[in-house]
């Protein structure tokens, strides 16, 4: 089961993550990312969301192994 880690300091609120994995990501009222339910999106979508984050604020992990490439 994939785990989503967020660096809120980096988050710029582009909302691109919620485009790629709409069940897992949302924006709060301040425009910062909110993690919803990662089980609703396929793992490949989580990886697209992480790699599509313009500022690299999202990473996807299997235990201690990172499965996205950190950048597109």
């Amino acid at each position: 089961m994939a785990e989503i880690r967020i660096d809120l300091e980096k988050c710029m609120g582009s909302g691109n993550c919620s485009y790629w994995a709409p069940g897992s990501f949302d924006l709060d009222d301040d425009g910062k990312v909110l993690v919803r339910d990662p089980a609703t999106d396929e793992e490949s979508r989580l990886v697209m969301a992480a790699e599509g984050c313009p500022v690299g604020a999202i990473s996807i992990w299997h235990g201690e192994r990172r499965i996205d490439q950190g950048a597109p």
Binding site: M12, S14, G15, N16, Y19, S44, E51, P54, V55, P72
Partner: peptide, 21 residues
Amino acid sequence: ERQHVGFGFGVHVCMGMHLAR
């Protein structure tokens, strides 16, 4: 599917990307 830079990237990434889509 792979990511692309059609909307740019980084903090200046296209603000209108959701509108365009």
